[in-house]
Each structure stands twice: as C-alpha cells, then as structure tokens.
Nucleic acid binder design. Structure first.
Length: 388
DNA sequence: TCTGGGGTCCTAGGACCC
DNA sequence: TCTGGGGTCCTAGGACCC
C-alpha cells in the first residue's frame, strides 16, 4: 500500500470538559463523571454537586478531569473505589444528550477541514488526510509530513473554535500507529510518527498500548516475558501463533512492527441494537419475579423505540443475564420476520429466558436485536432456486 | 464495599444443503 | 455401512473497545 497520512483525533477528557464549559467554577478541581444520569433537578442554578466520599452504589467513572486522574482514578473504575482514592473529588451525573450535541459539533468542524472521517464513538475519530496532503505537495519540494502537521493543527483549531474544547491528534501512516500517537502527548497534543520513528517511539511502549491487546492478552504476554511492543516485535512469530492462534498471533506480530493497512471507513450500518440495565440490588428470580418482569418489559419497549426511531427491524432477539457472581449468559432466538415491535421482542426474549437455569440472584438484564434490516427491504431475501 | 451501557469481531460446533 | 468437501445459518461465549 502506498504512503498514507492517517490522523486519530481524541477529545481530551471529553465528558468532563463539556461539564466544565457549563460549570466554569469547577475548572482546576478534581471532578469525575459517572453514576446516575443527569435529571431536571441537576439543572437548578444553585445545584451543589456532592463529593465522592459519600457515594454508595454500583456506578463507575465514565470520565475524570486530569486533576482527578492525579489521584489515581480513571475511566471504568468503580465509584466506591474511586471515593477511597479521591474522597474530595466532585461527582457529576452524566448528560449524554449534551455530550452527543458536542460530539456532532466537533465532528462537523473536522469535516469542514477534512471530510474523510471514520466514527469511533462519541469522542474519537480517524481522519484520512492523504488526499488533502498530497494535492498540496504533489510535484513541489514540500515535505508532506510538514503539510500533514499543518492540516492537523488546523483541525485542532477548528474543533476549539466550534466547541471550546481541546483534542489530541496523532498523524502516522496508519490507524494503528495514529491511535497510539494521539495518546503520547495528551492533552492538546499533536504527534507525528513516521515509519522511521517506530523503533524509537513505539517499541518502548507497553504492549497494552496496542488497540486490540486487552487485559487478557496483555497478561498472557507478560507471562511470556513480553512487556513492550519492542519485545513483541522481536518475538518469534511461531511462538505467537502457537500461543494466540493463527489469526490473532499473526496480527500481533504485524501490529508490533507498526503495520496496518485497514482503510478509514466513512460509513457503516449498525449490526445490533441493545438495552441493558444493572439493578441497584441483585434481584431473585422467584422472590422478585414481578419486579424483574416489569423491568424486562420496559427494556423491550425502550429497545423497540430505539429501533423505530433509527429505522431498523431485526430478526435475532437476544437475552443477556449477569448473575450475582458476575457470570454472564446469553441466549438468542431467530424469528421468521424482522421486527421492531416491543411485544414480539418481549415474547422472543421470554422464550430465551426459559432456556436459562435461574438458580442465582441476577444483577443485570439486557435485551438485544440483531440481524438488522431496514423495514420495507427484505433482509437479502434468499429465494432458493428449486432446481439447481 | 470491586466491576455501566452500548457496541464489534472472532471462534467453534452443529444443522442442513448441494 | 462408511466415506467427502464445501457453504451458510444459528447459537453461545469471550475478548475488546469507547
């Protein structure tokens, strides 16, 4: 594949930064976002947000300001644990509508500068800058990497103008490296990595910095004595294939050498839509049957609403249960026709539930619809030819 | 005092068809 | 009775990501 210029843009402490725009007095203080969702009461002008120390419940941190992160708290951490580390940090409820609004704003601002965008969730995107960079430098004695840096700086400025928020950008020849690069100089960083920088800048990093190597694979690599990306790059590929399987092992080897030819995908259809909820207290399938049933039906109604609003129907209905020991089971069932109807979803999910042994308390219940199609279109109608 | 909610992708076995 | 080689769909679980 010929040389590309791929950017990864990551908003800095996104949810927390949006809240600081609304509550500038909190700037400079340790603040975490998490727990329950924002309610109308939270909008009161004299609203005082409580310190973490008094928190009870099952919430986790979705974002923390850099001042809060200094106490060792981070995304995904239980709020109870975070309260021990940073008792004086302020806890704000999450306001996803507002974050989505800012998400649209920053993406529009980027699109005005560079239109080839791949969505990676609410606060990050990949941007393919290749055409922009090449059209300006082709046939001229300009270093395309300097041009790429200028474009990235323009994007950061455009995002700040549109939202008042900062972001960090990495620009490299591919998505894998750009994802790593954007993290190297947060917040408000702009990091350029060329192929010749891999050994010096990427190899010293922990293997977990590779997007796709998570807690499990990271731990297994540790036991093999492989700590850094450089260690991984120098590992005999045969050992990786043996330990992690043909596909994953080969991918790891390529990733460690900074090789990745995935395209920036500017549009994709959703594969599934789901709703799930964790209860404040674990519920017993017999004793709390009525309550569970009510929550179950409500999830199906919300899910049906999501499907209708987004214009999808699906024919694989899935159920998810998490028990008090955190063990998770799923069941699914494919029905004859795609649906977006709450009652039909509820019925199919109810059938799934009958196939799960219920001998423990339940902490989470979820419903999912997959095999999506747009109603009106048949899902790739397969009319089997009779004689073939 | 553990561990949210919404997703994607991969693997693997079995059914079923040609 | 034993022996094939695909291909697709369905289901369950798990790793991983934001």
């Amino acid at each position: 594949m010929s040389l590309r210029f791929i950017a990864h843009l990551d908003m800095d402490a996104f949810y927390a930064s949006v809240e600081l725009l609304r509550y500038p007095a909190l700037r400079g203080l340790p603040v975490v976002i998490g727990g329950r969702r924002r309610t109308v009461q939270d909008a009161a002008p004299d609203k005082v947000f409580p310190p973490l120390r008094n928190y009870t419940g099952r919430g986790v941190i979705t974002t923390a300001t850099y001042e809060a992160r200094a106490f060792g708290v981070n995304s995904g951490m239980g709020l109870m644990k975070a309260a021990r580390l940073a008792p004086d940090a302020l806890l704000l409820p999450a306001d996803f509508d507002e974050y989505r609004r800012y998400s649209r704003l920053f993406k529009e601002a980027v699109r005005a500068v560079a239109p080839q965008i791949e969505d990676r969730g609410i606060d990050e995107i990949y941007v393919d800058l290749t055409d922009l960079v090449m059209s300006e430098t082709a046939g001229k004695a300009l270093d395309p990497w300097l041009r790429a840096r200028d474009v990235a700086a323009n994007i950061q400025q455009a995002v700040h103008d549109a939202t008042g928020l900062s972001c960090s950008i990495g620009v490299t020849p591919n998505k894998l490296l750009s994802k790593i690069a954007s993290e190297l100089d947060k917040p408000a960083g702009l990091t350029i990595l060329r192929e010749s920088d891999i050994v010096g800048r990427v190899w010293p990093l922990a293997v977990r910095k590779i997007n796709g190597i998570g807690p499990k694979a990271g731990a297994r690599l540790e036991t093999l004595g492989i700590h850094t990306i450089g260690d991984l790059a120098k590992t005999d590929p045969a050992l990786l294939l043996e330990t992690f399987g043909r596909s994953f092992g080969a991918w790891m080897h390529e990733a460690a050498h900074g090789r990745d030819d995935r395209a920036v995908v500017t549009y994709s259809e959703p594969k599934s839509i789901s709703r799930e909820t964790t209860f404040e207290n674990d519920l017993h399938p017999v004793t709390n049957r009525a309550q569970l049933s009510g929550i179950f039906t409500e999830l199906c109604i919300k899910l049906a609403g999501d499907l209708q609003r987004k214009g999808y129907a699906g024919k694989t209905i899935g159920l998810k249960l998490r028990f008090d020991n955190f063990k998770t089971v799923t069941r699914d069932q494919t029905i004859d026709e795609p649906t977006q109807d709450a009652a039909l979803i509820r019925r199919a999910a109810g059938e799934c539930l009958k196939r799960v042994p219920l001998d423990r308390r339940i902490r989470l219940l979820g419903v999912r619809v997959g095999a999506l199609s747009r109603p009106g279109e048949r899902p790739a109608a397969k009319t089997p030819a009779l004689f073939e």
